Structure formats: structure tokens, C-alpha cells
Computed example of a mutant assay.
Amino acid sequence: MTTTATLTERYISATIRSLTPEVQDDVRAELEGSIADAIDARLEQGESRDDAERAVLTELGDPGILAAGYADRPLHLIGPKYYLVWWRLLKLLLIIVPICAFGGVMLGQLIDGAPVGEVIGTAVVAALGSIVHVGFWVTLVFFILERTGADTGVRWSVDQLPEPTQNGAGRADAIASVVFLLLGVGAVFWDAFIGFFPTEGAPIAILNPGLWPWGITVFFVLIAAEALLAVVVYANRRWTIGAAVVNTLLAVVFAAWSLALLVRGELLNPEFLRFVFTDNGVTDETMRILTVITGFSLDAFPIWDIVDGWLKTARARRG
């Protein structure tokens, strides 16, 4: 004949079953005593035994939480000791790794000559996969650190306090932008009249001389618009949605214009390509790969400029 276990017996059993055998008896004795005392106190107030027992056990709460307290076992995945280190590292890696995965796979697919749809699909899948892997492995490492009590060696100090920023709208940012753009203009003139590439005879320009005057004029107009945008942002002392939109349009126009010229073979000087590559026995396949890498670079910088502009706008709106 078997007897039905009481609520108290079931509660104590659920509490101690995850504890080590060495402490189970002590915890059982402690719980039996404390539960009995609490029930007796309620009985003296006129409650029935069943109601008193149920109320006492309800107040004690989930036996799993109680057992974790006895075992000094955390019930969180990443606790406060490691949370900020985990979160800062995770955010940094989630910015860097997916972008590198997306760009690297896209570049590889373009070099391999894959169709556009396959290039985009494979790159997106790679980026999403990197997000999953980064989130899982970084969290797993800190989960192990949390459970083993290991020390990451990371210590906060006042030297880590960030300097106040102006969200890319300060005088130094405006000056740097204008100087950088002027250097770009100077590089175009230097390439055309002096040349960057040494030859035994007259210098050979890298850019196609056929771009003069109208193609180069388009480039200079874009440069002037970028410089004007930098001045406007500085005058407003902040990035705005309008500035971010204009910055995006300028970057898209530059990327589309330069990429179209590259694909049509009108961006680089044919004489320069022949002197550097063809005359040295470089194959057509190698030339195709170099063209893909050049086009990828021409798109990468405008994309980063777009992202940077919107990030500065978001920071300015938060501020």
C-alpha cells in the first residue's frame, strides 16, 4: 500500500533533487523545520492545515529558485559581472564581422563570375550566418566564464571615459572633409599633367584622358557638392535628415557614375592598362579580376560614406 506525498514532501523533494548529496540532508532538515514552524504560526491564527501549508509553500516560491540559492548557482545567462563586457564586445563584432563576411563573399562571387542574384543571395546568407555564429559563440564564452567564475582581466578606469563628440559637425571635421576633397582634386590634376606612374618616357595618366573635360567636370561638381555639404553641416552644428539624404544621393551618383565608366572601359587610361598589364603578359582573366576589385572598391567607399552620414544623424537626433 502506498501513501500520497504531502505538498511539503513534494516541495522539499523538488528543492533538494538538484543539490549535491552532501548537502541534501541538511537542506531537507532545515526546510522541514522552517515550513513546520510557518504552518504552526498560521494554524494559531485559525487557518486550516491545508490552507496554511499551501500558503507557506507559495510564499517560499519556485523550488528551483530556492535550490539555486542553496547551491549558489546563478539563474541568468550572463550576470552583471560580465554583462557590459559581453554586450560591448558583441556590438563591436556584430558591426565588423557581418560587414566583412558580406563584402568578402560578394567580392569572391563577383570574381567567380556568378549571376547577380546568386551574388546577393550568397552574400546575405553569409552575413546572416555570421550574425548567428557571433551571437552564439560570444555568448557561449561568457556563459562559461559566468559559470566557472573565471576573470576576464577587464577593469574599468576613468581613462576609458569617452571624449565628448560633436557627431561629425565640428570645425575639425569640416576642415578635414574640405582638405580631403581638395586633395582629391589635386590628385586628378597631378595625374593628368605630371603622372603618378613612372615610365621611361612621358608620364602615363591613370585616368582616361577622354574624361576631359566633361567627365572630370562631373567629378569636380560632385566634389564641390560634398565640400558645400560639409560647410552646411558645420554651420548647422549637427547632421540632419536632410543632410544625410543629400549625402546619400551624392554617394549614389558618384558610385553609379564611376562604376558605369569602369564597366564601359572609359574610366582608366587604356594606355596605362596596356603598359602595366598587357605588355607584361597579364591574362584577360586577371584583368577581369582586377576590374571587379576596382569596382568593388568604388562602391565600398560610397556605401561607408552613406552609413557614416546616417549614423552621425542618429547620434545628433539622440543628442
Rank of each mutant, 00 (worst) to 15 (best):
I111L: 06
F180D: 11
G113P: 06
L43D: 06
A256R: 13
E285G: 15
V154T: 04
F136L: 10
A224D: 02
F196I: 09
R88H: 04
G33F: 11
V245E: 06
A14Q: 13
V218P: 12
F277S: 09
G121Y: 11
V233R: 09
T278E: 02
Y70L: 09
L311D: 00
G46N: 14
A235P: 04
A235C: 05
G129E: 06
R49S: 11
T240A: 06
I175G: 07
E32T: 14
P74R: 01
V282F: 13
L92C: 14
A202K: 04
V185A: 08
T58C: 10
E44F: 13
L207E: 03
T3Q: 02
T165M: 04
I306T: 07
A127G: 09
G135V: 04
L181I: 02
I204D: 00
R73W: 13
L268G: 10
I78M: 10
V185Y: 02
P203Y: 01
L267P: 01
A41G: 02
R88S: 04
W257L: 14
G135D: 07
V246R: 13
S177W: 15
D112T: 08
L77V: 06
I204K: 02
V138Q: 10
P98R: 09
L107F: 10
P270I: 08
G319K: 07
G210W: 05
Q24F: 14
V158P: 00
I303A: 12
